[in-house]
Computed example of a mutant assay.
Amino acid sequence: MAAELSAHHRRLARQKREAIISAATELFLNRGYDGTSLARIAEAAAVSKSTLFKQFPTKAALFEAIVTESWRDADDTIARPQTGDLRSGLTSIGHRYADLIGRPGMTALFRIVIAELPRFPELGRMQFQLGKLPYFASVQHYLESEHEAGNADVPDAESAANQFLGMIANFVLWPRMLLTDWDPAPSDTRYAVEQAVQTMLARYSSGPSA
């Protein structure tokens, strides 16, 4: 019985956390970071102020959680495939990245950061250091491992990772930031990833993958 109650309490806590993060993201986007109070977030999430303050004592802590959870696929064990097949590895990374940055929540996060950057530069630092940088590093490390294994010729993995992720983001994310009706079909996104993979193979493959 104690175990069941503990599991129930953990589930409730997780649901409340998700509600808080969802409400905060929407309010930050609609009212601005500075114009949104923790009390208003608690009200929108239908939780008590004490519940919110227990999990997120400051607005900065809450935004940090939003960034971290938005980029949760940056976990190295998830984002890095095994070495040995450059085409397969890049394809896996590319589709996962397209799915990640194509989420509505990710678009909202970028919009919040861009809108508030002049007044709150720390939001940009959080987005970069806690979100984009770990994800980028995982791709760079994957390319380095393929290079070291002799499966690819990637003398500058940092530049290569920038090229690969940039090709995908340029189709999936950045038009969405400017065009409210940008919603490419899954087949179009798959094609964009495939073309990015082909470009990388043409430049960096050292074997028959291309």
Rank of each mutant, 00 (worst) to 15 (best):
H95W: 08
A210T: 03
A160V: 12
E194C: 00
A39N: 03
A2V: 12
T68Y: 02
L143A: 07
G207W: 00
R176H: 00
I41M: 02
L90I: 09
D73N: 04
V172G: 09
M177C: 01
S187H: 09
A192L: 05
D75Y: 11
L90S: 07
Y33D: 00
D153M: 10
R203L: 11
F56L: 05
N162H: 15
S88F: 02
T107Q: 11
D183F: 03
Y97W: 15
A3I: 14
M177R: 02
V193E: 06
K49Y: 04
A152M: 08
M177P: 00
Y191M: 14
A65R: 15
A24R: 10
Y135G: 00
P186F: 11
R40G: 10
L178G: 03
L109P: 05
F120T: 11
R14S: 12
S206E: 04
K59Q: 14
G166I: 14
A137K: 07
V197R: 02
I78P: 03
A13K: 07
G94M: 06
E146T: 00
D75L: 08
D156R: 13
Q55C: 02
A161L: 06
F63G: 03
T107I: 13
Y191C: 10
Y204A: 02
D181S: 13
P208H: 14
A202P: 00
S209W: 14
E122T: 07
F120M: 10
R17L: 08
G35A: 01
V67G: 10
S37P: 05
F128Q: 07
L90V: 04
P134Y: 04
E4G: 02
W71M: 09
A19W: 06
E146W: 00
P184Q: 05
K16S: 13
T83D: 05
H141Q: 13
S206A: 15
M1P: 13
Y191K: 15
I114L: 15
G94I: 04
R190H: 13
V67T: 12
L143Q: 04
F28E: 05
I112N: 08
A137D: 04
Q198D: 13
G102E: 12
